[in-house]
Design a protein around this nucleic acid. Structure first.
Lengths: 215, 215
DNA sequence: CCGTCCGGCTAACACTCATTAGCCGCGACG
DNA sequence: CGTCGCGGCTAATGAGTGTTAGCCGGACGG
């Protein structure tokens, strides 16, 4: 299997910069915390959270496992940071797509495109975000699930609105919104960023699939 | 989360009966091997292969972890048996759907319905089958992946045939077949057998989604 | 009634890992 | 030039867990 892709363009949201000591901005690579999360993310995505060891994460950076604790509190905390950042960012983009206005059709097209584009561009975050929910310990697990529920609701409600306005025709708002969501989620499992397909092209195609499905 | 559902109607394919000693057919519950696989399946699906311990599987049957070794060779072998059985059965049903003939449209409708119905009725097998592929050790992992590739190819080729006959219209055989596959796979993650929705009803609806997407 | 062996049990082994403790080189800053 | 602490390192701890070894009760076949 191909490991090592994306030289360093990993997680680009998440607490962005600070979160550790204080003024980190001199010696060694500027942002060790972020580098560690990137390495962890790639491993969580390719071999799974439980299968990933601290030593493996360290290897990616050329340091030993225990040294990671100078930058992160625990393995679990890394997962929390990755998953919370992922879900928060996804929701943020979805809200922006909804707030951009337009008729139901346009809004649906937009949130599907955002959904798919995110799952292609950030396939590791997305993949981990869906696969490792049960690896989260309890206060956070429920918090993330709550965000996910909101994300899904926005889809369902939009489909419902479209159906009520007689723009969409579907036998079930719930099933069709799940179908649309799931086909986008699937992208994170097979999309290859090294291929020649641009994420926005894929997103547009999937938005079209969704509209065809609903009209 | 709800554990314990389906009283005992678990894995219904897999080497069916024999495979262990020889004439097992007297004392204690008839088929211990099968009961163990059922318990393992449910745990693999709900908490994951690596997170499942032999002791937990034993608990479901009221026996200790080490006692399981009187019936199965190893934890890994249970996973192999479950996943190979799942993929084999899925392919068997798909082939039957294709062999039933009819025009492209009918055949597509049928393999989508089979796909979705299986993912609803056997959601644990399906869920584990997709999530735990990388938990398989190497000779088997590739074997299963090969079956999966064949399964996916059958979808893609049918879509392609439809497009060439000008029955379907899609910008990409590959993307649209992945979209259809993935929306069906998603079913195994959310379908609730305790609800009032019949798997065949869901299957018919999804088959309709797929056709709408392609025409 | 006796031997066999099925299918359970407990104890023990051999690892694997996350995490903690404690040590130290070295660059920055006074 | 001294010291401070960042960010590495090694060693150790302690828990978890797949699997093996060896014991034993009881049901069945003779």
């Amino acid at each position: 299997m191909s490991t090592r892709e994306r030289p360093a363009a990993g997680r680009s949201h998440v607490p962005s910069v600070a979160a550790n000591g204080a003024d980190a901005s001199h010696r060694t690579p500027p942002d060790r915390h972020g580098e560690i999360l990137d390495a962890a993310l790639e491993l969580f995505a390719t071999i799974g959270y439980r299968a990933t060891t601290m030593a493996q994460i360290g290897d990616r950076l050329g340091i030993r496992g225990p040294s990671l604790y100078k930058h992160v509190a625990s393995k679990q905390e890394m997962l929390v940071e990755i998953m919370a950042g992922m879900m928060t960012e996804l929701l943020r983009r979805q809200r922006a797509a909804l707030d951009a206005g337009g008729d139901v059709r346009e809004r649906l097209e937009r949130i599907v495109a955002v959904h798919v584009q995110y799952h292609a561009e950030h396939r590791y975050e997305a993949f981990v975000g869906h696969r490792e929910i049960d690896s989260l310990e309890e206060p956070e697990r429920s918090r993330i699930l709550e965000l996910r529920r909101e994300y899904e609701s926005n889809f369902r409600e939009l489909v419902q609105e479209g159906r009520e306005r007689d723009v969409f025709h579907t036998s079930s708002d719930r099933w069709s919104s799940y179908a649309i969501l799931d086909m986008g989620i699937g992208v994170s499992a097979w999309y290859n960023p090294a291929g020649s397909v641009a994420p926005d092209e894929l997103a547009a195609t999937y938005a079209d699939f969704a509209l065809r499905m609903l009209t």
